[in-house]
Structure formats: C-alpha cells, structure tokens
C-alpha cells in the first residue's frame, strides 16, 4: 500500500508530501504520524507540502487535524512551502488552519520549530557563546 514516508531527524519528524494526496493516503498519514509521535516522543513535526498542487476541503481539514493531534501529543507542527493556489483555496474554503505554524521553506520551518521549542539553532547558539 502507498504510504508517505515519515523521517526522524533528531527531535523532529519530517513529512514530505511528494504525491497527490487522496483521502485514504491522508488518513494513513494521520494514523502513521500520531503513532510515530507517541512512539518516538518527538517534539516537533514539519510537513512539507511544496509539491502539493491540489487541495480540497477534506485534505485541508486533515492538515488541521494532524496539527491538532500533534499538539495534543505535545509536538509543535509547522506546515511549509504551501503553494499560492493552495493557500487561496484553503482561505476560500474557510480553512484557515488556526494554531498551525507556517513557513516558506524547510529551512525557515526548522527555525520556527526550534524557536517554538526554545532551542536555538547551532549558529545562534555559537553567536550566543561568542557574545
């Protein structure tokens, strides 16, 4: 069965959606991700949707749900790389994803996650040590 890979990177889980999402795939992702969060005790989840070009109300709600579940499991979620068309569609559908952090790309998303968890990036830590 088709699955979306979930990568563990330190304290964070990395989900990159590279294929068109269909409803069952989203359901599977939701189950896999919550299971992985509770098993690994991850504190942050980064979902990269830069390849996602079509979104409907179901997938939109799924994203919000995943973020909500991750929060309950004590993991901050950041959604990165949303395409303009997807953002417009979600707004028109009234799915404003409240409580979900967003960032333009993976790099900025990681920074947002570290900030949210109060952990400075290695560069920032170096700068702090020097100062």
């Amino acid at each position: 069965m088709e699955r979306i890979p979930i990568l563990k990177m330190g304290d964070f889980l990395l989900v990159t959606i590279q294929v068109d999402m269909h409803d069952r795939l989203a359901m599977t992702l939701q189950d896999d991700l919550t299971e992985r969060i509770s098993r690994t005790g991850a504190h942050g989840v980064l979902i990269d949707i830069s390849s996602l070009e079509i979104v409907d109300s179901f997938i939109g709600r799924m994203l919000a749900n995943i973020a909500g579940m991750a929060r309950v499991l004590d993991a901050a979620t950041v959604v990165v790389g949303m395409q303009p068309a997807v953002a417009i569609t979600l707004v028109e559908l009234g799915l404003e994803l409240p409580g979900v952090r967003t960032a333009l790309d993976v790099d900025k998303g990681m920074r947002v996650l570290r900030h949210a968890l109060g952990r400075p990036t290695p560069q920032e830590a170096d700068a702090g040590a020097e100062g």
Binding site: P84, L90, L97
Partner: peptide, 11 residues
C-alpha cells in the same frame, strides 16, 4: 483573506 492566505504560506 489575503492576509490569511499569506500566513498559510508562512509570510
């Protein structure tokens, strides 16, 4: 709406 869409993209 515009502001929300921009926020969803991370700006």
């Amino acid at each position: 709406k515009t502001i929300t869409a921009a926020r969803l993209m991370g700006a």
